[in-house]
Design a protein around this nucleic acid. Structure first.
Lengths: 207, 207
DNA sequence: AAATTCGTGTACCGTACGGTACGGTTCCGA
DNA sequence: TCGGAACCGTACCGTACGGTACACGAATTT
């Protein structure tokens, strides 16, 4: 089930390190072979070509992240609200991670090549797990009567927008992390508070 | 005051076209010289080097966009709400534009080089004008009693998040425009409606 | 022990691209 | 009419990088 051998994982880890340190230009096959103490021929044997290597880096990184499924017992409203806040902080933390930023930059920079295959990989392995986890959480809240919405997708997108705002793109553009981590828990609380005012128990339907 | 001559503007326009059509790889100095019927020597004379050319493309594109200052007369709440919706639709339209996407991809892809100078240019010439226009609009609404907030920046970021959500990054990653333009006015209305429920006249303070 | 497999290290090739140099042409001002 | 500036087209250079080939060593198999 593991798509890569431990040796290949080590090489991919090294590749991620190079990418984070110096961007895409620093990730050359010769440089990776030197840094990882392997041969270029092995790289091409394992990953096909450079694009295959980049794709492998994304799937490998995704394989490292485990999304904790929430245990279904969520009695009090306070617990549920706290779970939402944890999700919000996790989301901000993931998006602000340097490996995530580097891979997103890589995929965005290559979005014109090959029909955005890297972008599709990032969406599938990076964003989709987050979304499914969040949707499960939201529907759990609705089942317990803490939330009120008809369109789960709309509720999720609203939550995402309230939490992330445009900070992700700003970080991708290289904005120094001055306003990025300014009190992440504080920002999470604000976002969750706003979300509850839109989709909380007592909220009215829209339109 | 115009930083470039008409001839140089024409060349930059051609460069943008190349960038949109084929991504960064398609934007070579030789290719641009051929497409724009100019010599490589002129390119280097005008823009210094390739990075100077990229920077010039961003400032040139920014110079094309004029941000309509709202006339200060904004009597009814309905007018103001409509102005917010117009802003929201404009924002979505700009971010979904292929030139904007191409330039953002370019700046993000180069965010590791030279301290993210291109990213800084995009933020300064692309995002800042939008933000100032929106802040003026928001404060106008507050002055007329339609909105209620203490932190303009927070209100603006919330509005941005409600309108854009994560669609910008998804588009940057190359997601096909299936869900992007799905009834843009509808999405704008929803976002503005949500925004009014958070910062509208009768809204309570947060926390 | 021989052979097969796997991987390293290195050398090599082709090419694409950034940047420079130069000859020829057009245009404009003196 | 002359001189110079600007610019085009092209040819050229150096280099960096993706990809391939090959020789040698180590481990595993038979």
């Amino acid at each position: 089930m593991e798509p890569f051998t431990p040796r290949q994982n080590a090489v991919l880890e090294c590749a991620l390190q190079l990418l984070v340190a110096g961007g895409e230009r620093a990730l050359t096959t010769a440089g990776l072979a030197r840094a990882a103490n392997c041969s270029k021929e092995s790289l091409y044997k394992w990953f096909g070509d450079r694009d295959g290597l980049l794709a492998a880096m994304i799937t490998y990184q995704a394989s490292k992240v485990r999304t904790p499924g929430p245990r279904d017992s969520m009695p009090t409203l306070d617990d549920f609200s706290r779970s939402l806040a944890v999700f919000a902080e996790d989301l901000m933390g993931v998006l602000a991670g340097e490996v995530s930023l580097a891979l997103n930059r890589l995929a965005i920079g290559q979005a014109d090549r090959d029909g955005a295959q890297l972008g599709a990989l990032v969406r599938e392995h990076g964003r989709l797990p987050i979304e499914t986890r969040a949707r499960a959480l939201l529907e759990l809240g609705r089942r317990h009567g803490y939330l009120k919405f008809s369109d789960t997708h709309e509720a999720y997108e609203t939550l995402y927008g309230l939490v992330v705002r445009d900070s992700h793109v700003r970080m991708l553009l290289g904005e120094p992390p001055a306003g990025l981590s300014d009190d992440r828990p504080q920002r999470a609380r604000l976002a969750i508070s706003q979300f509850f005012r839109l989709y909380g128990h007592g909220a009215q339907d829209i339109e």
